[in-house]
Amino acid sequence: MDSTNLAQEITTHLLSRGLHPSPTWLTTTFLPTIRPTTPLPALKQTALFRLLASDITQTLQRTPSSVFPPDIHNATIRERRLAGPIAVQVLDIEDIGRSRWSQVEALEAAERGETTKGREIIRAVRAEDGGEGADADADVAGSGGPHKLVLQDAQGVNVFGIELTAVEGVGVGMNIGAKIVLRDVLVARGVVLLEPGSVKVEGGKIEGVHKAWREGRKERLKSAAGITERG
């Protein structure tokens, strides 16, 4: 298969997931790295995987329908629907159902290796290959929400999203940089209202951003709660 056809095949596949790759990314970033002998289905998977791990402001095509409209922040518009599909990446997520301080307490207990079950204090056993503290976050991830997110589209516009009804895959345990595709989504006063019917979490993450977000999470929660560290 020649490279034009190949690019076409892959684009079609990605479009079916709501992701419109930019031709530049496809031809100059992605295609040169693949081995020509790789079967097509595997290539499609690889392309999707790479795209989900990328920063979409660099890798997705900007068309009027695949990004937020220019007046997206206009708060005088009570509500409107955007047909999309609009692919966005998650830059921040916050559980607004719990006080920030209680989240700080939970994080600190997890750092000490403790969790509580009712009144009992339990020593959490660290996973052998704990990686970047994934286990410590697990409990916090189980929190109820709803969540407030910062969503960024392919042109780099940031918009708040509120989880009106619990959406699978959305939680403080999710990766930063994870891709979400919005279809026929409700926007009220410049805020995207997330509901299962209009939201699909595709996953992925942006490694560096994710790491920085994790590391800074406790401090951000603290400062949002209005705590200033004493000397």
């Binding site: 916050e94 607004i96 159902g97 719990r98 006080s99 920030r100 709803p146 407030k148 708040f160 509120i162 009220a188 006063r189 805020v191 209202l193």
Partner: peptide, 8 residues
């Protein structure tokens, strides 16, 4: 814990 969310 978010005023904007509750307002909307």
């Amino acid at each position: 814990f978010d005023r904007m969310a509750v307002t909307i």
